[in-house]
Computed example of a mutant assay.
Amino acid sequence: MSQYKIEAGTGQHIGDRHEQQDRVGLFAAPHAPGYMMAVVADGMGGKSGGALAAEQVVRTAKQLFDEFYPGNDVQQLLENILNEAHTIIKLTAVSSEKEPHSTFVALVITPQQEAIWAHAGDSRLYRFSGPNFSEKTRDHSYVERLVDEGKILPEEAKTHKLSNILINVLGSTNVSPSISVGKYVNLKVGDSFLLCTDGLWHYFENTELSAAVAANTPRQASELLIRKARDRGTPRGDNCTFAIIKLIEPPPEVKNYTAEKIRRAV
């Protein structure tokens, strides 16, 4: 019996924008029991263009995960999703005369108690241990580079006038996207993950996110986080999209048999 049960959910709000350009998905692998995937994409590129790009990321992720088998390389799967989605988004730009782009963040949980993730852009993955923040991905953004170079402080990044400039996205016609990969092993009850677009993380501290996820079911946490994000972001709140994955105690085994007295054969 599994050492934990996976409890997951998604949340989404259009914010104060005219269109929802984020997409999110939770998938099981039909040929690989025990594997699950969460993926979040933040589309950019004007009216409908960003939505098309983000939709393509999620659609590509599902298609390739449907073809995944035990023994296949998870990191290679994530890289294939990024590269194929990037190529199709570029082709969409040619046919639609738009300039669609998208971020990408995905997580795969395996039956071997592993969590493997990858991202491009500024959509993030957070990992929590119980109520404690453990780690998060590093944004592929201009302000993050300024932080790395010591030109601004981390707390200045959120309010910097160039905070929306990304240096690594899917769909760019100038440069192919790069992928950052992370891994955590020996998963246990109490571990949890949050994948989200900047329309959520921009309004919260790490400790607030970890506390909200730990103290609630994914659905309850989604309602709480959306409500808080709207309170803090109105009237200029961005699209807000996220997925929550929690590892909880498995239900007790239920006996589905009855014992009867054995009669002596004559």
Rank of each mutant, 00 (worst) to 15 (best):
R227I: 02
R236S: 11
A28V: 14
V24G: 06
L166S: 11
K136P: 00
H160G: 13
P154K: 01
L146H: 02
R227H: 15
V175W: 10
A54V: 10
I245S: 01
A29W: 05
S180F: 11
K228R: 15
D139C: 00
Y257A: 11
Y4K: 01
N186D: 09
H13T: 08
T10M: 15
K136C: 03
I226A: 03
K246N: 00
A211T: 13
I116T: 06
Q113D: 11
A120I: 05
K228L: 12
N239W: 14
S95T: 15
S176K: 11
R227C: 09
L247N: 00
D73T: 05
T110L: 01
E260C: 07
P251Y: 03
Q112P: 01
L170C: 03
K183S: 10
T173M: 10
S102P: 12
R145Y: 06
Q63E: 14
E99I: 05
K98C: 07
T234W: 01
I179A: 14
A28G: 08
V189C: 03
L209W: 05
N83C: 10
N239Y: 13
F68S: 01
K62C: 10
Q3R: 13
L194W: 09
T258V: 10
P33I: 02
I81T: 07
N186M: 00
A32T: 14
P100A: 10
V266G: 04
A120S: 15
P251Q: 06
P235I: 00
F193Y: 12
V181S: 08
P100Y: 04
T92P: 02
N206C: 04
E135T: 13
M1S: 03
S210L: 00
L195V: 12
G171F: 02
K151H: 10
G49M: 02
H13M: 10
E144S: 10
G11A: 12
E79G: 06
E99H: 12
N168Y: 11
H18C: 09
H13P: 11
I6N: 07
H202A: 09
L247F: 08
I244K: 04
F65Y: 08
V39W: 12
L146E: 10
D238C: 07
G121T: 11
S2D: 07
A157G: 06
N216M: 00
K261Y: 14
A61N: 14
I152G: 07
P177V: 09
M37Y: 11
Q21T: 11
V39G: 10
D16E: 15
I89W: 13
A259Y: 14
G9H: 02
V105Q: 13
Q3P: 02
F193R: 04
F68I: 04
L170N: 06
L146A: 05
Y203P: 02
Y142Q: 05
T137P: 06
P235Y: 01
A38L: 09
M37W: 13
L64G: 08
I6G: 05
A221E: 04
E114T: 07
L194M: 12
Y4C: 00
A215L: 09
